[in-house]
Design a protein around this nucleic acid. Sequence first.
RNA 1: GCGGAAGUGGCGGAGCUGGCAGACGCGCUAGAUUCAGGUUCUAGUUCCUUCACGGGAGUGGGGGUUCAAAUCCCCCCUUCCGCACCA
Length: 826
Amino acid sequence: MSLDHKWQKYWEETRLFNAEDVSAAKKYYVLMMFPYPSGSKLHMGHCKNYVIGDVIARYKKMQGFNVMHPMGWDAFGLPAENAAIKFNVHPSDWTKNNIQVMTQQLKNIGICYDWSREVTTCEPDYYRWTQWLFLKFLEKGLAYKKKKEANWCPKCMTVTANEEVIDGACWRCKTPVTKKELDQWFFKITDYADRLLEDLKGLTGWPEKVKIMQENWIGKSFGVEIKFMVKETGDELPVYTTRIDTIFGVTYLVIAPEHPLVKKLVKGTEYEAKVNAFSEKLKMTPEMERTSDASKKEGFFIGRHAVNPVNGEAVPIFVANYVLLEYGTGAVMAVPAHDQRDFLFAKEYGLPVRVVISPEGKKLDPVSMTEAFVDAGVQVNSAQFDGLPSAKGIVSIADWIAQNGFGTKTVKFKLRDWLISRQRYWGAPIPVIYCDKCGIVPVPENELPVKLPHTVNFKPTGAASPLAAIKEFVETTCPKCGGPARRETDTMNTFICSSWYFLRYADAKNDKEAFSKAKANYWLPVDQYVGGVEHAILHLLYARFFTKVLFDLGYIGFSEPFTNLFTQGMVLKDGAVMSKSKGNVVLADPLIEKYGADTVRGLILFAAPPEKELEWSDQGIEGIHRFLGRVQRFIDPRMELLKNAAWKIEGGKLEKEARDLYTALNKTVKKVRDDIENSFHFNTAIAALMEFVNHLYTLKEPAVGKAKQDFDAVLGLAMKDILLCLAPFMPHNAEEYWEKAGGKGSIFLQKFPAHDPAFITDDSAVIVLQVNGKVKSKITIQAGMADAEVRELALKDSKIIEALAGKAPKNVIVVKNKLVNIVAAS
RNA sequence: GCGGAAGUGGCGGAGCUGGCAGACGCGCUAGAUUCAGGUUCUAGUUCCUUCACGGGAGUGGGGGUUCAAAUCCCCCCUUCCGCACCA
């Protein structure tokens, strides 16, 4: 049996890394974003993620924490279904098979999971609780059904959430999305917009980048909703603006072509057909195209006018492609002089430009302007507000409008409600029933789970989920009145499954509830979450939302799920992210086979700091391999010293050689600890260990007496500490030496070394001597020598005297234990 | 366009609150061990110049602050990432 397997088996059999629900030790919950069981063999990209988490888990265990490091599978979702269709197998079989393969692979690189807490989101004992959570949301009015135009991916044949549309395309398959009107289930994430934004401030353990991305996505803005009125019909037409200071510059209004009021306004007029054709066209245009060229503004007059409440002026109403139905009120007041989009549109269609904000000390000419003036300035042409700085104008005009009932001050968010229904098979069925008499009826909790039928006809049809074709599934009775009823046939977005899995790990086997409150409150929030930055918005926003809802419902006592977040850099190959579809994967197995798991782990960790992207290269693997060899060749002949090594040494009583070694050891241990704890910079931690091992090879052991005794004692400790420091990174070898050295039990039950703070500085210091900032000489002094004394020595140094060439020093700067810079006339 | 991160040898990367630029590793060169290859060990390896001692330049580019700048300030260039008609 190989060394790798020997220890992997040992860890598994001794359940060494299983977390305790009750423990005197402090808990530490380290979690990797769980993977999608895609069936691709483990490649270096995967390896990097899991090895990072593994190092943290093992390190924390050696610090005496009760560590929970679980693993599970985000197992529902389109790729399984698509692959199943392609290979003509059932998604369930495909998924199960993949899980098996991936589990083995994770074990092969020696990741220490608590497998007893494994969760698989496509299993009924998991999605039962996903469905239960849906019912809770429904109960609280946080889930609702609405007919709405939604993003539709023509390839995946389902609707998607806004968060899943990247650059106007489906985030999974990159197909440009179109719009489709369907009856859809939504989660009211907008109710939580403010808290999701506010609580970001408290997430001090999150990367700034991720917080900024969430902030932008939530997109809070302060403005005024102002009521225009359609002159011809008397309809109210509210618009939203953040630039109320420009209200007197409105020269026309623009409505989104899909706006319901538009239909009414043009009904029976010559514009009706034109508007319909226009909005149809926009609907079919992929969003990417519609928004790709910011300058291509298209639209036309619809024969109606709107009255500006502040001055009674009637301005023409247009429809145009650049106004979005979903944001604000779906209509905007156009101020071409001060908004670039309006400006371009006005120039295109010959609409008037009216300046109402003037730049300080300048005059704008509407005719000769080449772009909108969007900065702050002074109010002009703005009735009683003339002369006011526009920054004050925003406030005063808003107040005045509110007082006169022209409109109200409003806060808007870019964030929209989360569309959660999917017209696909491989997901958790939405647990509701439609009854002609009773309407929408939730499935009673004791009837959960609503099991996903094991059909073979799971190909998407386009209009409805494949479940709709399964009579036995659809036809049911109403839980309320007992009459005939139909089941909902859409399934849930898989991001729901992953929005609470971190809670399930705390109590994975519970068949009475999703998780016990006590266990959840013990284990969570997650102390260290690790994952890819690609989920900065999607998963991380949804998980925060779920946590807040569950907190409000009283199921948990915390409202943020992840205290610390670490986003690791991806592994690239030939400049692209490693992925099966790109055909640029470097598999882990062959390398593990050849060099052993520890060498592969070491290389990944040593090549770059973990947050950085890593362009894969095998170069360097020899270096790690050699290092392990050097450790072995050093320890083997000195095994007796290691076996007899003490746990603590009195530094003060050591002879010089031993004391120097002891100091070097302490510095190394401190560096390793600091690098792990402060920044997860495992690359420099490993480098420090290499440096120390190199140093050991250069040492000459004193021949006899106390000097030799002391030295040997420190050397024994040094070897022991090296093993302990190495253990989180290269666990198999560490265990092996630990055993050879007669260590009792696993090395992971030992304490990680701590440095002796009294011995981290050398007795002597090398001082750099500079003349005018250039190094001219070096001297060795007693560490901590007084500045005046060092200065004296520096000025007496022969090379310095030579460099000065008789010139008198103008100034001498002494930096303690570091350098002396002598400033002389040049 | 807006926001964020980054730019250091042939390569991956180190450089803490300003204080010897290039730790550690790869690669390369020379030597030792070896029948040979591999392994291992020793020495060297930023660039220019010099037989050498030495000297000069150097952290994307240009300015500045300072005794001293990869590090702080200003301007510019490049790359990557995110957002992008959000009114």
